[in-house]
């Protein structure tokens, strides 16, 4: 069975986008990765062209602290999509976890059905690999 996913990376930092793309390429050969430096644009793209039912789900690697439209706002808006769209996506929060001030807010995101897990930056092959091991059997 083919277990490849496609990926969407949402991060305002160019370097972090580059890293995510490389780490994904090295971990899963030949997958499609789309990069968005602006969360609003990502949301619009998903709304216009959602993943078709029955296809491989898309994994969204989402940064939290972004100007203009942050990760929290993204999840809030994403939750408004109809279930048949939402169930084709898995959101992973990719963030630096240091400030106590919003750490609780970040963990609270896990209560949303679409948010699967939280990975601390920087993303490495090991972290992505163990995440993929964990989600693959469930699909």
């Amino acid at each position: 069975m083919n277990m490849e996913f496609s990926f969407i990376v949402i991060d305002d930092s160019e370097l972090d986008c580059f890293l995510a793309r490389k780490v994904i390429e090295l971990t899963e050969k030949g997958v499609v990765t789309r990069i968005f430096q602006n969360a609003q644009n990502a949301l619009d793209a998903i709304a216009e062209n959602p993943v078709e039912k029955g296809k491989q789900p898309t994994i969204i690697l989402l940064d939290i602290q972004m100007p203009e439209f942050n990760g929290f706002q993204f999840v809030e808006e994403f939750e408004k999509f109809p279930l048949e769209v939402k169930e084709n996506y898995i959101i992973i929060i990719l963030s630096i976890l240091s400030s106590a001030r919003n750490q609780n807010d970040i963990y609270r995101l896990l209560t949303h059905g679409t948010v699967n897990s939280i990975i601390e930056k920087p993303l490495t092959r090991d972290k992505l690999f163990s995440f993929l091991q964990q989600v693959k059997p469930t699909i």
Binding site: S13, F18, I96, P122, T124
Partner: peptide
Amino acid sequence: VSHDIRGPLSGILGAINL
């Protein structure tokens, strides 16, 4: 400090790993 200092630092660290 967490975002504007640790943010770029974590990126640089990730790049070194990669």
